[in-house]
Design a binder for these strands. Structure first.
Length: 525
RNA sequence: GGGGGUGUAGCUCAGUGGAAGAGCAGGGGCCUUUUAAGCCCUUGGCCGGGGGUUCGAAUCCCUCCACCCUCACCA
């Protein structure tokens, strides 16, 4: 049943069998058919690998070190052809698997005419091959598999761009060719990954980063949980949601915009420290810093306030940076960023006052604040609320300068409905945002656990923003119900994993750290 | 959504009103220590789609599409 649906979808898109789009594909198809006629299966079901490429090289180098008299090391490796250097009755090539790359040397004497013909005539770049042979080192010092057998494992029908590399005298590697068109790279990420090893490295770093965060939180006693992605109500952030519908329940559902309200329900349930790493969905503009779905990490811990959160975040992220880079610093283009704790702490009010000369408490309503901002030449959105104006000041004057990890403290109450008031200043809440490299990467509160105050805040927000506006949030009665049973005092933190990975990998576009970033569907014609 | 830019061979790019080009990849030939292998020969294009101006358009104009940058929007 499921299969039929899939076939139908594909058929609707493209109703005819694939045909070669150009000479290169036609030639490769011809080779494929020629091989089939010779009785060669171009996609055999079985392989006989004895070594990964990394294992083969390591084993050989260890043997070289160990003894003067070396036993020959027989290996069978598998991989994809990355370079092809035919040379009469012998031929060189480079084969790559997931562990590395090695040179192969195919000689007529060793492999015989059939395999030599296969290699020279019918094996193309990006074909998969299995090579049996003996490890050796060439005169120029390159570790090489001297082949005595070569078989095809999988034929490549569409050519990928060739990348050539040259090692310069100073040891740096100069690269030629490749796949650089961003549209093709994002649409056909498989091709991008196949030809660009540095792109593969970005996603390895991404995986290691997430693992390091998970390891830290697990070790610190947090419980990893999973909460609904499909939610009857959305909340925990100010963002427009995606909507969907469950047929049998006949119920509209939203894709979550944050994890917050469900994770804090779990504190009511008796878990003292929980976290979740997963996907959030926001139906908003796509940009260098925004993708409609993105990976978020949120944790909540009972019996700490936002200063306790800061301590955890400092330790967690510096530990992660250490695990990824081996040091405490990263060096993107904006200069060295040092994660050594403690990090800078400054109140939002002081930061804005220092950078813009505006003390927003002197302008307690939207009209007067908008007026003074216009005097300073700031673009002010028509009808913006006071809280939104403060946020504009932050984005305009403060954010770009926050290169070193910095906690920006104490936000106006009316843009932070889930945070607890400051005891000495009820107009502000105990909240911080974390900025690194000029990017907002995290957000945290001393979480509001007073159900009466929480309901009051929800109602104020609802009055402030009309239903249907971007900031509108439905009141989550069930969340209030949970809180009325008793929620421990707690601190919580949320962070955009993608943006943090951008910092660690030195990429300035979120699409560079997402395997399959959101793109508009391509319209034929 | 506004502004700017890009779109030419499989890939990376030149060409800005007068016979569509280069390098790499591909095909043929020579070559048994090459590694951006080399040398000789060579195939390959609805110049993003559509419309217009012109004797003539890859090039100028209009329009549509996609991508990039930027602004707006965005806890």
């Amino acid at each position: 049943m499921k299969r039929a649906v899939i076939c139908y979808t594909l058929a609707a898109k493209e109703d005819t069998m694939w045909e070669p789009a150009n000479d290169l594909e036609a030639q490769r198809l011809e080779k494929l058919n020629r091989l089939k006629q010779q009785g060669v299966d171009p996609y055999p079901p079985r392989v006989e690998r004895t070594h990964t490429i990394a294992q083969a090289v390591t084993e050989f180098e260890a043997a070289e070190q160990a003894a003067g008299d070396m036993e020959p090391i027989p290996v069978t490796i598998c991989g994809r052809m990355r370079a092809h250097r035919p040379q009469g009755k012998s031929a060189w090539g480079d084969v790559e698997d997931g562990t590395g790359q090695v040179q192969i040397w195919v000689k007529l004497d060793e492999v015989g005419e059939a395999a030599m013909d296969l290699y020279k005539k019918d094996v193309d770049l990006f074909d998969y091959v299995q090579v049996s042979g003996t490890m050796m080192r060439t005169r120029r010092g390159e570790v090489t598999v001297e082949a005595n057998n070569l078989t095809l494992l999988a034929k490549s029908l569409s050519p990928l761009p060739v990348v050539k590399e040259r090692k310069l005298d100073d040891g740096t590697i100069e690269r030629y060719g490749g796949l650089t068109d961003p549209e093709t790279r994002y649409r056909e990420r498989y091709a991008d990954l196949a030809v660009n090893p540095d792109v593969r490295e970005v996603f390895r770093t991404r995986a290691r980063t997430i693992k390091a965060i998970r390891d830290y939180l697990d070790a610190a006693g947090f419980l990893e949980v999973e909460t609904p992605i499909l939610q009857p109500l959305y909340g925990g952030a100010a963002a427009r949601p995606f909507m969907t519908h469950h047929n049998q329940l006949d119920q509209d559902l939203y894709l979550r915009i944050s994890f917050e309200l469900y994770l804090k329900r779990l504190l009511v349930g008796g878990f003292d420290a929980v976290y979740e790493i997963g996907r959030d969905f926001r139906n908003e503009g796509v940009s260098r810093k925004h993708n409609p779905e993105f990976t978020q990490m949120e944790f909540y811990k009972a019996y700490i306030d936002y200063t306790g959160v800061m301590a955890i975040v400092e330790e967690m992220l510096s530990t992660v940076v250490q695990a990824i880079t081996g040091g405490m610093t990263i060096t993107p283009e904006k200069g060295t960023i040092d994660f050594t704790p403690p990090w800078d702490r400054i109140t939002l009010r002081d930061a804005i006052r220092e950078q813009s000369g505006i003390d927003y408490v002197d302008y307690p309503d939207a009209e007067s604040l908008a007026a003074v901002m216009k005097e300073k030449g700031v673009h002010v959105t028509e009808g913006a609320t006071w809280g939104r104006l403060v946020d504009t000041l932050l984005g305009e004057f403060v954010e770009p300068g926050l290169i070193q990890p910095t906690f920006l403290l104490d936000y106006p109450r009316d843009i932070s409905p889930l945070a607890k008031r400051k005891p000495d200043d009820p107009s502000h809440v105990e909240r911080f945002e974390l900025f690194i490299g000029g990017l907002e990467v995290g957000n945290a509160f001393t979480e509001l656990n007073d159900p009466i105050d929480q309901e009051d805040r929800f109602r104020q927000i609802r009055e402030l923003y009309a239903e249907g506006s971007d900031e509108y949030n439905p009141i989550d009665e069930d969340y209030l119900n949970a809180m009325r049973y008793g929620m421990p005092p707690n601190g919580g933190f949320g962070m955009g994993i993608d943006r943090f990975v951008m910092l660690l990998t030195g990429r300035d576009n979120i699409r560079e750290v997402l395997l399959f970033p959101a793109l508009r569907e391509k319209d034929e014609g």
